[in-house]
Computed example of a mutant assay.
Amino acid sequence: MPDQNAPHVAVETDVAIIGAGPTGLFAVFECGMLRMKCVVIDTLEAIGGQCSALYPEKPIYDIPAHPAIAGADLVHRLEEQAAPFSPIYLLGRRVEALSERDGGGFELRTSKGELVRARAVIIAAGAGAFGPNRPPLNDLSAYEATGAVRYMVARREELRNKRVVIAGGGDSAVDWALSLKGIAKRVTVVHRRPKFRAAPESVAQMEAAATMGELDLAIPYQLHGLTGKDGVLDHVVLATLKGEEKAVPADHLLAFFGLSMELGPIAEWGLGLEKHHITVNPATCETNIPGIHAIGDVATYPGKLKLILQGFSEAAMAAHAIHPRIYPGEALHFEYSTSKGVPAE
């Protein structure tokens, strides 16, 4: 994987892609198929975005042709797909400034001093910098330091034969409950109400597993406290809105209350924003600044679905919309990949 590490280096490219998650990686492929070179910049030290950072082993079920694929495996396949086009990855840094250049194009400055000069920009930064929403519990940091309280699961085997309490009502909580019920010693799912925000089929599977005694549901309860010593957890204390409490034996608490999103410097670039998202033309994914496009979770427009597969489609639309900027006056004759193939590395 190429990586440009030297500070104050000017990198010339056709397209600068901000964000190395699945959507950004697929944008490399789509641009490459149109003979456009890419530089990919990401704040994380590795490619993959949230798939790598938050759920590398979590199965993803809505990727076409993959009934189930782990986040890390999806990232690996996308990296392989992009490899023939030799993208430059600038990892572990963020874009601090973006400005338009005289004569067209853009200049991006990274936190490590590189200057990236590009004729177009694709923002595929998820919803910006992210971090977990942390529950307001006493002594939380002590349990975070030992790994007793976690907001992601890198390896399921670390939880084998452990007593795990999962808090949350979305897809992450339900999916991990199903994934861990055959590995952990006991799984207890805590939610403040019977209705979950996860995929209905997954919720049905979880409820069926609870009926069969494969996991426990603590409803309607909320997190109330942690008990243990020196960061070693022994119980998670739960409480109802009426103040009824119970302590659940636990070695680990997995808290899935979503991510705290922050656009960072992107918010200062004069782009049209709507609730921390970038508004785009749904036909081209272009923002209010010509030549800057946004795709994936960070982009919004009427009818937008926050699905990886929709981000893939947006990557293709953005690449085709950018092509005339890179090759002005050249007619783009659309060809299917089955006809034109993929360049050899």
Rank of each mutant, 00 (worst) to 15 (best):
P135T: 13
R150N: 06
G131Y: 09
G329K: 04
H224M: 02
T211E: 11
I308Y: 05
Y327M: 09
L115R: 13
T43R: 05
T227G: 10
E157P: 01
A167S: 10
P2V: 12
V187F: 05
L238E: 07
E345L: 11
A127S: 02
V121F: 01
R134N: 03
L223K: 04
A344S: 07
I219E: 08
A294E: 07
E345V: 09
G103A: 06
C31Y: 13
A250G: 09
T13D: 03
P22Q: 14
G311T: 01
D171T: 15
V28P: 01
V298H: 12
L254C: 05
A142F: 00
G24D: 06
L180T: 00
F106Q: 14
F257S: 07
A177L: 02
K162R: 13
H8N: 11
C31T: 12
D297S: 06
H191A: 14
L253P: 04
V187Q: 04
L91R: 10
G113D: 02
I289V: 15
L254D: 02
A125T: 02
F196N: 07
L273W: 03
E274K: 15
E314W: 01
A68G: 02
A283I: 02
K306W: 04
A120K: 05
D73I: 05
G341P: 00
D62R: 15
K195V: 13
V9G: 00
A27S: 11
L254S: 02
V232D: 06
E158K: 09
